[in-house]
Design a protein around this nucleic acid. Structure first.
Ligand code: MN
Ligand code: MN
Ligand code: ZN
Ligand code: ZN
Lengths: 136, 136
DNA sequence: TGCCTTCATGAGAATGATTATCATCTAAAT
DNA sequence: ATTTAGATGATAATCATTCTCATGAAGGCA
């Protein structure tokens, strides 16, 4: 038997959040999305923002990362499969990265230590070209 | 001139926390350390646990990671320099990992994208040999 | 050993992100 | 149009972490 997925409804709120993410190019927190939607007129309840982002994340429609301050941030990535990110810690500019060597390395290390079912978190943070220049 | 470091005092509390970390072999949260110190008789205020762990982290005496639930966890590692971790998500068993290929990869990726001042977070999570076996 | 200055401590309040409630609303099927 | 399983959102509740500030105690020095 198949797992019964509850039916998903198309609501104004979900559309607003989805549209927002489609146009954003960096990671945003639930609080930021809530605030910016409200500022744009498409007000959505904070709880709904959290719930929707959680659902979209579980469905694989958006990526979630933890900021260095420990908050969850979300982004709709162009790359659909497994990948990582290079994020500017100044302006938020985000590059999507795929890395065969890292994938292979993780697999090898896991095997060497007798670990199974190994996942990895790999994120890069730095200053993008523009922000590096402005930094002088 | 040298940066003025405020003087660090040797207190019962700092000794207790340091001792605790010296004997623990997996990552522990501030809350856990506070609870376990209290259970062991060496009661230390929660605020002091947080402050001390923060100080030790800044001094490089302990490593801090974010659990997948977003909490900060601390560990005194044997490896002193930069390294990563392979953690059992079941029992907490932790292996320290150094990875030249990952270091080189991060540097290369940063350069390719024009990023400077790039740091990386790399953590592996899986099931250790023992927990894998018990899982059957 | 007995002060003194400065740093350290901790109980409790404050903060802030995230989650839980639950009465009310509504998409969508019939 | 009616029905119903979902969805929403104002609000309260959680919970880790930080802040306050009155009190305690290292460590230097006489
Ligand atoms: Mn990967
Ligand atoms: Mn590294
Ligand atoms: Zn930038
Ligand atoms: Zn294990």
């Amino acid at each position: 038997m198949m797992t019964e997925h509850p039916q998903r409804r198309t609501t104004r709120q979900r559309i607003a959040i989805s549209e927002f993410l489609a146009h954003a190019d960096d990671f945003r927190t639930a609080q930021q999305i809530h605030e910016q939607l409200r500022a744009g007129g498409d007000g959505v309840g904070l709880a709904t923002v959290y719930r929707t982002l959680q659902t979209m994340t579980e469905a694989g429609d958006v990526d979630m990362v933890r900021t260095q301050e420990g908050e969850s941030a979300y982004r709709r990535c162009a790359t659909h499969g497994h990948h990582h990110h290079l994020v500017c810690r100044c302006c938020g500019r985000t590059e999507e990265i795929t890395a065969k060597v890292v994938e292979a390395w993780a697999t090898t290390i896991a095997a060497q230590h007798g670990f199974t079912d190994v996942t990895h978190d790999v994120e890069l943070h730095g200053l993008c070209e523009r922000c590096s220049a402005a930094r002088v």
